[in-house]
């Protein structure tokens, strides 16, 4: 067990190093000197030099890379150029709002999608099944922006069912602002998930244990809800769990439209103000969380299911 853990941790460290290398290359080698882009029309040689000093851009590349690795370890990414706020503060302030949008939306979507795909598989080949798959494909094909604009314009602006946009820190008020964004997230993702989960469920349908359960005389409903559901949950959950670190990212577009001050909005604002230190820090942070999340999942699986270690 210890050897397996050690191997996994070393592997994750090598990936972290790789990610750091890629992001660094992207921003410092391919991207070249960003100062004129940041300064825009206020650029002059002196300001440019100051900015290079502040972000260490005039040091040799390898020193810059070591400084960047240090930033990753200490979680201190310096200051945003546009707002002069500390970047770690911007990031940690954004996680809460992002999660309060994505976490409920994610949980509801997953539960709904599993139920619908199970329901669909129960009626496999029949009209209900085909209708569900048809609706999923149609739903997947509608552009994300169309959902958001339509929802905001009709449901919030025209019909006044929801507030148009906004966010509150007190929990009760926050919920009223989040209902529509959560709803839109669900509609956007439901089609994909239903189709995706349906494949896992289909794979279970012809297994021996299903035949045994039927042969025992169990009703079709209990074959589905007890046996097939439980067995297909394993691959489904594996695929669901690895998405969790991405949830802190929120949703760029939904947060932007509904003025939710999450990490998605942070990125969009950073793009608009050409705030390259923030974009770089954001890219790094989400990737690191993903790697760590992945590592924890792997280790937990090994604890739960000792067979995994052998591979």
């Amino acid at each position: 067990m210890r050897r397996y853990f050690l191997r996994k941790i070393l592997h994750s460290l090598s990936i972290i190093f790789g990610v750091a290398l890629i992001i660094f290359t992207l921003f410092h080698v391919i991207g070249g000197d960003p100062v004129y882009e940041i300064l825009g029309k206020y650029a002059n040689a002196e300001r440019a030099q100051d900015l290079r000093n502040e972000y260490g851009l005039n040091k040799p590349l390898w020193t810059q890379f070591i400084l960047y690795l240090k930033q990753i370890v200490t979680f201190d990414y310096g200051r945003s150029y546009a707002t002069r706020q500390s970047i770690s503060e911007i990031l940690s302030n954004g996680i809460g709002p992002s999660l309060s949008l994505t976490l409920p939306a994610f949980v509801i979507t997953t539960v709904l999608a599993v139920s619908i795909s199970l329901f669909s598989a129960f009626f496999r080949g029949k009209l209900t099944d085909r209708l569900i798959l048809l609706l999923s494909v149609l739903g997947m094909s509608v552009p994300v922006l169309a959902y958001i604009l339509f929802g905001q314009y009709f449901l919030a602006y025209k019909l006044g069912l929801f507030p148009i946009s906004g966010y509150a820190h007190s929990l009760g008020e926050r919920i009223s602002y989040l209902v529509l964004p959560v709803l839109i997230w669900i509609v956007i993702n439901l089609g994909y998930d239903v189709r995706y989960f349906r494949v896992f469920i289909s794979k279970e349908l012809n297994q021996d244990y299903v035949r045994t359960a039927r042969a025992k005389g169990l009703s079709e409903v209990s074959v589905f809800t007890k046996h097939i559901l439980r067995n297909s949950l394993v691959p489904i959950l594996t695929n669901v769990v690895i998405q969790i670190p991405f949830l802190i990212l929120g949703s760029l577009l939904i947060e932007n439209f509904f003025s939710i001050p999450g990490l998605g909005s942070v990125i969009v604002d950073a793009i608009n103000s050409r705030d390259f230190p923030v974009i770089k820090a954001m890219t790094t942070l989400v990737s690191m969380l993903f790697i760590i999340g992945h590592l924890i999942t792997d280790l937990l699986y090994a604890v739960v299911d000792p067979r995994i270690k052998i591979q």
């Binding site: 992001i23 391919i30 991207g31 991405f246 990212l249 760029l252 990125i267 974009i279 993903f290």
Partner: peptide, 17 residues
């Protein structure tokens, strides 16, 4: 390594750069 960077963020970083 590349799969560990969320695709949309990587795309943004790329096009930004």
């Amino acid at each position: 390594t590349i799969a560990s960077i969320p695709n949309i963020i990587l795309l943004i970083a790329f096009t930004y750069v």
